[in-house]
C-alpha cells in the first residue's frame, strides 16, 4: 500500500479513536486501559512474520521472543479485562 493510503487510514483512525474513547464511561477507564493494552499487542503480527521468515537466525529468535511477550499481553490483557467487567453489576431490584 502506498504511504499516503496508509497515512489516510491512520489519520481517520485517530479521529475514530478520539470520539470512541470520549464516549467510554469514566467508570470503565481501568478496563479501557487493560483492553487497549491487549489490542496494542496486535504487534504480534510483526513478530509472527519475523519468526516465520527464513534467512536470519537472530531475526527469527527476536521474533519468537516478541511473539511470547505479545502473547502474555494478549491473553493477560483480555483475561483481566473480562475478570473486571464481570464484577460490574447493576442494583438488584
Amino acid at each position: 500500500m502506498d504511504f499516503i493510503a496508509i497515512f489516510s487510514i491512520f489519520v481517520l483512525a485517530c479521529f475514530v479513536g478520539y470520539f470512541v474513547v470520549w464516549s467510554v464511561t469514566p467508570a470503565l477507564h481501568t478496563p479501557l486501559m487493560s483492553v487497549t493494552n491487549a489490542i496494542s499487542s496486535v504487534i504480534i503480527v510483526g513478530a509472527l512474520i519475523a519468526s516465520a521468515a527464513a534467512g536470519s537466525a537472530s531475526s527469527k529468535w527476536l521474533g519468537l521472543a516478541a511473539v511470547a511477550m505479545a502473547s502474555i499481553n494478549i491473553f493477560g490483557g483480555f483475561a483481566v479485562t473480562a475478570r473486571m467487567l464481570a464484577m460490574y453489576k447493576k442494583k438488584e431490584r
Binding site: 487510514i9 491512520f10 483512525a13 485517530c14 475514530v16 479513536g17 478520539y18 470512541v20 474513547v21 479501557l32 486501559m33 487497549t36 493494552n37 489490542i39 496494542s40 496486535v42
Partner: peptide
Amino acid sequence: ITGALVGSS
C-alpha cells in the same frame, strides 16, 4: 488502526 485507537485513548 489499533495503534491510533490506543494512542488516542
